[in-house]
Each structure stands twice: as C-alpha cells, then as structure tokens.
Design a protein around this nucleic acid. Sequence first.
DNA 1: TGTACATCAGTGAACGCGCGTTCACTGATGTAC
DNA 2: TGTACATCAGTGAACGCGCGTTCACTGATGTAC
Lengths: 218, 218
Amino acid sequence: LNSVKIKSTKRKKAYHHGDLRQQLTLAAESILRERGVQGFTLREAARRAGVSPAAPAHHFKDAQGLLSEVALQGFREFGAALAAADAAGSPDPQERLRRQAGAYVKFALSQPARFQLMFLHGKYDRSGQEFVEAGKRAYQVLEGAIRAATGTPEAQPLSLEGYGRLLATWSLVHGFSHLALAGDLRTPDGSPASEADILDKLVPLIAGQLPASSPRRP
Amino acid sequence: LNSVKIKSTKRKKAYHHGDLRQQLTLAAESILRERGVQGFTLREAARRAGVSPAAPAHHFKDAQGLLSEVALQGFREFGAALAAADAAGSPDPQERLRRQAGAYVKFALSQPARFQLMFLHGKYDRSGQEFVEAGKRAYQVLEGAIRAATGTPEAQPLSLEGYGRLLATWSLVHGFSHLALAGDLRTPDGSPASEADILDKLVPLIAGQLPASSPRRP
DNA sequence: TGTACATCAGTGAACGCGCGTTCACTGATGTAC
DNA sequence: TGTACATCAGTGAACGCGCGTTCACTGATGTAC
C-alpha cells in the first residue's frame, strides 16, 4: 500500500504492483510454513500475492526459480544465524561449536519446510553464483570454529582428523535436526518430544556429545 | 507365470494375477529407485505391474497404503542390516557401533529414495502395529550396542549420558546419510564425493568421531 | 512543460497433462451341497 | 463328481481436479525530444 506512492527510491523499481518479486517470495515462504515443501505451487503463490497466475513469469523463469530465491535467502539467514551464535559468547572453540549446534537446530525447527527445501536436491537450482557464495559462507562459520579447535591457521588445510571432526559435527547437528522435524525424537523417559523438549532437554544432551579434541579408541 | 498354476500353497492366495500385492510393492520400489519419492504415482505402479489403474484398490486402501507397505518392508530390511552388522565381528561395543554406522550409511546409499521415504513424515501411515514393531526393532539394535558400551543391563533404563550418546550416534549417522544423499559431501581435498569416496574414505573418517566413553569438556 | 512513443508488468482465458478415485461390469476362482 | 452360487480380483471408461505454462492483450510507467 505505502509502496504505491513511493517513487523509485528502492533499487528494484516499483511499477504497477510495487514489489511483486518480494511479495511472491514472502508468499512462497508462507506456503512452505503452512503446507510444507510438498504443498508449494506457483499458482498458490500468485494467489496469495493477489495476482494472476501468469504474473510470476515476469520475475521468475518458472516455479523452480521462485524456490531458488527462497532457498538462497534461507541460506543467507542460516549463515547469519550461525555466525551470530558463533560470536555470541566465550571464544572457547568447543563452546562456539555448542552454540552453533543450538542455532542450527533452532533454525531448522523455526522454519521446518524452508530448512528441508534448502537441503533438498532437485527442487531448485543450486548452481547460481549467489547461492554458491551463501552456502560457502555458512560452511565457513563451522570451519572457522573447527580451525580454532584444532589450531589450524587459515593458510593451512585442515588435517584429516580435523576434517573428520568437521564432518562429524555437521552430520550430528544435521541429523538431529532432521530427526526432530520427522518427529522421531523422544525424551529420555520415552514420550514423544515436543519442540520445547527438544530445545531445552535434548539439544544440551547432544551438545555434550559433540566430537571433541583427540578422540582415541580405548 | 509360474505362480499361475500353483495352488494356494502360499499364504497369500493366488487368484487371477498371481500375486499382485507383491508385484505392486516391487513396482513401487522400482519407481522410487528410478524417479525418487517425488516421482511415485499409484497409476505408474499399476502400469508397471501390467494392470489397470483401478486394480490396486483391491489390495491397498489408496496410494498411501502402498507406500506404507514399502516403508514397512524397508524398516524390516534396515533393522536386519543393522543387526547383521552389529553381530558381524568383534564384540567390542565401539566396534559394534562403528559397524552399525557403516551399515546405516550403506543402506541409505543403496536405496536412496526408499530410505528418504522411510524418514519422511506424512507420506505414509506410521501407526500400524507392524510398522511400530519394525521401527522398534531397528532402534533396539542401536540401543543394544549403547547398553553394552555403557554397561547398562536390560533391566535398567539408560543413564542420561547414555541416552545422549545414543541420540548423538543416531543423529551423526543419520545426518551423514542425508548429506551424502543430498550431494553435499566433499572429499578432504574439496572435490564432490562420489559414492565410493563416501564409503571408503568419509565413513571411516566419521567412524573415528562417533561419541565414545566419558566425553569430558577440556 | 508537453507530447509521442517504447517498455514492460500486469490480465484472464485457454492449453494439455496426469493424477487419484469411482463406477458398473466381467469373468475366473472357491465353496456348499 | 457335478452343479449352483457366492466371492472377489480384475477391466476400462469416466469423473473432477489443480497444476505449469502460453497467448494475445492492456494499460500504466518511463523516456526522448
């Protein structure tokens, strides 16, 4: 409404609609929230943006194009959330990793379908330069903490063990998030875990089990 | 062909078709293999079984019913594979867990879409008694090794730390499998990891990072 | 400042598609006597 | 062993549905002179 009268102060010009590209992205996100990845359709996104089914074609090549935009913005937010958690406390590397783990799970639980979309192959185009950069940035937040934990300077590649630790940490939080979203997690007493249970009880439990320094076979 | 002449020696009777229920299940699995979870349709399953689109209704309530059967059999095979790996070597608990981890990833990679279906919420009915039992059996293979690792007899519940270790182990292998299927894994030198890379190089790497006895914060 | 024109984001109707499911039916198999 | 009948796994045509995308178009916005 307010954007109708506003001239081209924004970079994206406001022609007739104002900012349809952005509105379609928001609409897509709301569909994901309410109906999941399965429930997304381009027509429904157009409907929610109050526009005819042909309109999106002027902003996105096709349905995948819109989803690619949603995934891109998701990875940007994701990377920012990880970076914020990484920086938000003690500089101890293991503490940093624990905070990242918490942020990872929290992000997944707060936007389940968007998170699932982000890690779903073939639903959108991962080859765009912006996407590659956003993905790399998120990855580097984890890598940074692993480098600190293993005392590996930027100039050096990670040791094999360091890389194993990175993979294991990533796998652990990623798998935990998926199991949480799938509803497969239970509290220690065996009852299905609510979202609060997961964040308050289970996350601390697995945070204590993140791969740590020099694991040796007994 | 051969089943046409055979009388009711099998429990499931062979009427006209012979064994359509089984054939439909096999057809569904082949669709999953070739087209993924997304690509499954009931009509295509009927087509592959050489039967009209209305025929499946005599064996499965609806499309979900067929997928539920596929998921059920998947969990049975999955549990059996984990149990086999658990028993196939040294009784050392950490060794058992490493073998289970390998089998977990191997199962996921060998039948990606079936594995994804199994852990996908809402695509099929998880409430059947047979399904619950198959799921529990697979879970108990992991729990058994964790009990051995923590010295917890069957009569006792797992300690909180033991439960954390179970969750962390499960999450780790589950997340690793998902990342592998999504194509997000890379070899230590940074190139995309092939299936052989994953099984031969990366699995041993994370197997060395599985949660082990008494992890303490440094 | 005014006018002619180009640009481009919208409309709305239409397309062909494949889906899941339903329907009345057919005909083979199984069963009771 | 034979016959009448019930059961039930199939057929194939049809249904309504919502989808992504295309099409010729309209009309507002931006631009050149």
